[in-house]
Simulated scan of single mutants.
Amino acid sequence: MSARSISLAEVKERAELLARFDQAYLVPTPIFAALTRHLTDPRRPQGPFRALTIDGRRWFRYHSVYYDTPELRCFHDHRQGRRLRFKIRERVYQDSGERQFEIKLKGGRGETVKHRRPLTGSDTPLDGPYRAFLADALRTAYGIEAPTLLAPSVTTDYQRATLVSDGERITCDARLRCDDVRARSAVRCDPGLVLVETKTTGHLTEADLFLHAHGVRPAVFTKYCGSLAALRPGLAANRWRRAAGRAFSVIAPS
């Protein structure tokens, strides 16, 4: 990816976007290459997008563990489009070893609002301080109590590159693999696709318009819900079934 570098500190300063609107796209690799060339072109009137770079690397390994109740409350709340819905995960930045406990909520305008707290040592999201953090976030945002029974549900592994402009961030995820912790099965994303997500404060971005012009429409897809739709065919998951069927064309043995 030919682009000027940007440091993690600059990303947080210019486009941390803990409250934002997201659009997801399953982008064929030739169109993805054209998109990155377009956005990082030095002649771009607003200035080229820059690529997050740490220790000379631009692609980084991510591992996430999603937590849910035994009856998959988080999944079904998203499936039913409930306003008071949330996701809970542990995110591991494998190249640095950093770990974060993250809670993703929906704001009043439908935007994603992320709350996060570092995990240290052998801490897990099921430990008391993180349970209290979750309870406080849900009580403050929604006036509801946190579920008492939580356990790992799905893990995801992928490589991510991030392009950044002022107030705008684009994440590009490749080699996505999702494992069902309970059923001990796994799916792998088609290697000819890149999951591109645009993140901004509330308008169609240049990347959105470029993808639309090249025939790529937003996908009804999230890593957690899309992977469960593929991993568990018996689930009521019609909302994600089409995109999941397209993305997860290769089944990987556990």
Score class of each variant (00 low, 15 high):
residue 2 S to N: 13
residue 7 S to N: 04
residue 8 L to H: 02
residue 13 E to L: 12
residue 18 L to I: 06
residue 20 R to K: 05
residue 22 D to L: 02
residue 28 P to Y: 07
residue 31 I to P: 07
residue 31 I to R: 14
residue 36 T to R: 14
residue 47 G to D: 04
residue 47 G to F: 06
residue 50 R to Q: 14
residue 51 A to L: 15
residue 58 R to V: 12
residue 59 W to Q: 13
residue 61 R to L: 13
residue 61 R to H: 15
residue 63 H to F: 11
residue 64 S to I: 00
residue 65 V to H: 02
residue 66 Y to K: 01
residue 70 P to W: 01
residue 74 C to G: 11
residue 74 C to D: 09
residue 77 D to W: 15
residue 81 G to I: 04
residue 88 I to W: 01
residue 90 E to V: 08
residue 93 Y to W: 06
residue 95 D to I: 06
residue 97 G to I: 00
residue 97 G to W: 00
residue 98 E to I: 15
residue 100 Q to H: 06
residue 100 Q to P: 00
residue 101 F to C: 04
residue 101 F to Q: 01
residue 105 L to M: 03
residue 113 V to W: 09
residue 114 K to A: 02
residue 120 T to P: 01
residue 124 T to H: 01
residue 129 P to S: 09
residue 132 A to M: 10
residue 135 A to E: 15
residue 136 D to M: 07
residue 138 L to K: 06
residue 139 R to A: 12
residue 144 I to D: 13
residue 147 P to K: 01
residue 149 L to M: 12
residue 149 L to S: 09
residue 152 P to K: 00
residue 152 P to N: 03
residue 156 T to F: 08
residue 157 D to G: 14
residue 158 Y to K: 00
residue 161 A to V: 07
residue 162 T to K: 01
residue 164 V to Q: 09
residue 167 G to T: 06
residue 171 T to P: 10
residue 172 C to R: 02
residue 173 D to Y: 01
residue 174 A to G: 09
residue 175 R to T: 14
residue 176 L to F: 03
residue 177 R to M: 08
residue 177 R to I: 13
residue 179 D to T: 15
residue 180 D to V: 13
residue 180 D to W: 15
residue 186 A to V: 11
residue 187 V to G: 06
residue 189 C to R: 09
residue 191 P to W: 07
residue 193 L to S: 08
residue 193 L to Y: 05
residue 195 L to R: 01
residue 201 T to V: 11
residue 208 D to N: 14
residue 220 V to P: 04
residue 221 F to N: 04
residue 221 F to M: 15
residue 221 F to K: 09
residue 222 T to N: 07
residue 223 K to L: 03
residue 225 C to I: 00
residue 225 C to L: 06
residue 225 C to Q: 11
residue 229 A to P: 13
residue 232 R to G: 07
residue 232 R to E: 07
residue 240 W to N: 15
residue 240 W to D: 08
residue 244 A to W: 10
residue 248 F to N: 02
residue 250 V to H: 12
residue 251 I to D: 14
residue 253 P to M: 04
residue 254 S to Q: 10
